[in-house]
Amino acid sequence: MRTIRLYVRLLGAHLRSLLEYESDFWIMMVGTVIMQVVNVVFLAAIFAKVPHINGWSFWAVVAMFALVAIAEGVGSLFFEGMWNLAWQINQGDLDYMMVRPYPIVLQVSSMQIGVNGISNIVTGGLMLGFAIAHLGIDWTVGRIAGGVIVLLSAIAVKVAINLATNSVSFWMQSPSPLFAFAVHQVGDLARFPLSIYPLALKAALGFALPFAFVSFFPVTFVLDTGDAWVGLLTPVVAAYCLAVAWFIFSRGLRRYESAGN
């Protein structure tokens, strides 16, 4: 509990200074909303030509887009600092964090707030709301509870992949997180149904970098179509991803060499 309270405190400290640059704040917020709207317009244009993609309706794909947007939004709003890890390793900026009584990984991830996360969460939430309304889901108590757990796990998968790939910077020594960014781009593929991809990509997105558990499998679970049971594995995948990410981060930390004066 104290850990979480302190996390909010560390993040919140940056919020105030961020609001000092009001114009930046609004540009970020509006820019992100426009990007999401463009995504949906693009999707609608595709579905104007074909009624289904591989059996998936427009609104089912909107739900997948929505989950990616929400997961990314949570990542930027609460864990944006991870993207600075490469720079901090390169500059030796972890020194002081390592002598403070608070988990280092949380000190790193709370170093920055990505306010554009708010608009990603809001637009993603709206997209998800509309999609659910149009999909005519048979809501039982079990499905609601399962849906919430799967949604939270999907976000955790995304955050864990971010942490794992950024932690690779401990081995790279480069000042920018090129590897993590490349993987992040791959994650965009998860906006579309996994079933449209060839086997190799399916394996990559389902196992190696399980982005399919950020959007595709959670949606199949809620819709109760296809291999819906796989969606139920999302919490397990999330736990696994977090464990792997934590392992990579702590191994990396042992390699940390600070920086010479």
Partner: peptide, 9 residues
């Protein structure tokens, strides 16, 4: 100093 404070292994 970094060894004594745990920053380096």
């Amino acid at each position: 100093v970094k060894l004594l404070s745990g920053i380096l292994q």
